[in-house]
């Protein structure tokens, strides 16, 4: 979009600049030749005709505009920003909370927090009172099952807490956010084949009496979420693919 707008602006400038300059030149040319005529100073070196002036200006401006457009395309196109370290173009990025009823008749059926999942390698990380169990898919299941599964757990609540999450994919020059809510100990499937960048996954626990406030539309933004949450934890993971071994 930015590239297209830039190109349109440059093309418009390439038309406008010669048009404006030729109008100015016409006024100047007219004054000059009439001055020569009035002074009888004829027979000197002929001046450039307006059409020749326009043609030369147009060629020069077009050449400059072409260089600018080419540079704009290279500078602003997502595919040319560094290496393949961002989600350039359209790439499917999905993060989804999976309550128990979602897991029925799936490879994750019967999952309990901290349990192993077939086809995945299990890891564990703790941030404050929140424990994150996360599962990275093994090579043979790549592209078949979600690439990453996360299960945040917080056991300090006597009552059933409300859980919200904010996720941020941050790779290359783009950023994509996702949000939602689920139950304590629920699985989150992160499906982002081909994505190479960081994932920041925040989980917030609210007591039941905060629920109305949280659910009110537009009441809580990212900044206030963290302040209002009873407990919150952050999970960072690098989702860049390892370099292939020689």
């Amino acid at each position: 979009m930015v590239v297209a707008s830039g190109i349109i602006i440059v093309i418009l400038m390439a038309i406008l600049v010669p048009a404006v300059t030729v109008v100015i030149y016409l006024v100047f040319y007219r004054r000059k030749i009439n001055k020569r005529l009035a002074e009888g100073n004829l027979g000197g070196k002929p001046m450039m005709s307006p059409i020749a002036f326009f043609t030369r200006t147009f060629i020069c401006v077009t050449a400059v505009a072409f260089v600018i457009i080419v540079n704009l395309i290279f500078a602003l196109s997502p595919n040319t920003k560094g290496r393949n370290d961002g989600f350039a173009g359209t790439r499917t990025l999905a993060i989804k909370a999976l309550p128990d009823f979602y897991l029925e008749d799936s490879p994750f059926e019967g999952y309990t927090p901290g349990a192993d999942i077939k086809g995945y390698d299990k890891y564990e990380m703790t941030d404050g009172l929140v424990t994150f169990y996360y599962y990275k898919i093994r090579g043979n299941m790549q592209g078949v099952l979600p690439r990453l599964m996360i299960c945040p757990v917080c056991d300090t609540f006597d009552e059933y807490p409300m859980v919200s999450f904010r996720a941020k994919f941050d790779g290359g020059f783009n950023e994509l956010g996702a949000s939602g809510s689920s139950d304590n100990g629920a699985l989150y499937a992160v499906d982002c084949d081909g994505y190479e960048g960081d994932l920041i996954f925040n989980v917030y626990y609210f007591t039941p009496n905060q629920e109305d406030m949280v659910n009110a539309p537009g009441q809580l933004y990212d900044e206030t979420f963290q302040d209002k949450a009873e407990i919150f934890g952050t999970f960072n993971i690098d989702l860049r693919y390892p370099e292939p071994e020689e």
Partner: peptide, 14 residues
């Protein structure tokens, strides 16, 4: 007659 030209108005179209 060149000596009787009072003024010249150039046009863009030659």
């Amino acid at each position: 007659a060149v000596s009787h030209i009072k003024s010249i108005r150039p046009a863009f179209t030659q």
